[in-house]
Structure formats: structure tokens, C-alpha cells
Amino acid sequence: MTAQPLFTVRSVSKFYGNRIGCEDISFDLWPGEVLAVVGESGSGKTTLLNCLSTRLLPTSGVVSYRMRDGTSRDLYRMSEAERRFLMRTDWGFVHQNPADGLRMTVSAGANVGERLMALGDRHYGQIRATATDWLGRVEIAGDRVDDQPRAFSGGMRQRLQIARNLVTGPRLMFMDEPTGGLDVSVQARLLDLLRGLVQDMGLAAIVVTHDLAVARLLSHRMIVMKEGRVVETGLTDRVLDDPQAPYTQLLVSSILQV
């Protein structure tokens, strides 16, 4: 790990009028590190993720990102053009519902190729070859490259969404409940796949989930949130095996044992 964090969050708060979305969140994320944000629904996980990924303007706080040239930039002091460029090159965002992250009316190949074309790639054959290669890497058969995501199962759509984000070789991924709504065997395969990709590409990721098993499998560190605030942070195994905060203890003991 390098000496400087990739992503620095300082005192980020988001208020919806008088209600708290999230309050006073600070953490660092290092290159290649996967951070899970867990908590029950309504605890501000998604609000936090949106504030970090520039999809929602926080009420206060500083979020900075270390660019490829090594300089650290405050996301909310960048121009919108720079932010959007960052979002579609160096970052990825995986939505819980794949329909939010995919273009449902164009083929899988075009979905994967969109970022390449946005970056100025103008060779159809190469774009298609890259798209087919990426479909293979997320375990979608190459002959589905011209099918629309509408014809895909939930698990395939989610894998397609991941491929679409990874095609530009990003350094940071935001994932909002990446396994939500999938059955357990599909979840397991997706998690396997994600773990492999994260390792191979040296991706850093912030994964929002309410599923502690997902956090356990994917993440190195975790943040436990309740009512918009952080109640506990630490290495994933430590937090799950030896929860300190009463709320984390409740959460861990609520896991169903089969």
C-alpha cells in the first residue's frame, strides 16, 4: 500500500431539512482497499455513498480524491466537466437495480462500449472485441453481445453492469447493494467474481450493503452506521468477530444461522 490515501473523507454531513441523512463521517481509503458500509435500512448508507460519488451535494465536509497524476483534488471544487470525466473513466458505480446503471434498450456490447466511445474510441471492430472480452470476464457468453439487457436474468444484468464500469480500468468503484435482489447461489457467484476482479485490477471499492456476509467476503475494513452516524469502524474480521458497540453486537447476533 502506498503512503497516501486514494480517497479522503472529512466530516461529511448531509441534512434533508431538519432530518439527518448522514453526519460527520470521516475516513480514508487506500488504493486497492475495499471498505464496506453496513447498517440497517435508513441508516444513511446510500446517502453517504451518493455524497462520496458526487451524485449528491453534501451539506458540509470535504471529499478529496488523489488523481492519477498524484495530486489530491477536492471533488466539490472541481468543474462539473472534470467530475463527470472522472466518473466515467477513473470511477465506476454499480447500482442495486441494474436497470438504473444500464441502457436497457441497447445491446450488451453497446452498454460495455459506451464508455470507450465517450472517450473517443471510433473503431467498431475494436470496441466490439473489447466488449466481447469483458463479457467473457464477467462470465457472460460471447454470443449474447448483441442481446439487449432486457433479455438477461437479474444476475447477468448485474454482471453486465460491472463489466460496463470496469472497461475503462477504473481505480475506484462505488457499489450500492451489488447483490441485492439476487438469490443466494447467484449472489455467491457474483461475490466470487467481484473478489477476483477487485484483486486482479487492484481496485479500491466502497461497498454499501446491509448483508454482513457480503461485507465479510468482499471487504477489508468496515464502517457500521446507525441513524446517519458511524458507530463502529475497524477491520472486517475484527468488527464481525468481536463487535464492540452495542448496536454492532445486535447486528451481528441478528444474522440467521442455517
Binding site: 462539473e80 466537466a81 463527470r84 441502457r103 441497447v106 445491446s107 456490447g109 453497446a110 462500449g113 459506451e114 464508455r115 466511445m117 465517450a118 472517450l119 471510433r122 467498431y124 470496441i127 466490439r128 453481445v145 448483441d146
Partner: peptide, 30 residues
């Protein structure tokens, strides 16, 4: 390809025209 007027205006302003090629790509694919 993009039904939101706010979004298309932004795309013109920021010269984000990748989507136009997505349409042409889709033509060739089909």
C-alpha cells in the same frame, strides 16, 4: 437515447457525445 432535457443540454455543454456513437454502434450490431 436520453429523454431528459436537462441531461442532453449538459451533454451538449460538456461535449459528451459518446452516446451518439452508441446509437450508430447499435445500428451496426443489429
Amino acid at each position: 437515447l436520453e429523454p431528459r432535457e436537462t441531461e442532453t443540454r449538459k451533454m451538449h455543454a460538456l461535449e459528451e457525445y459518446g452516446l451518439m456513437h452508441v446509437k450508430l454502434y447499435e445500428d451496426i450490431a443489429q
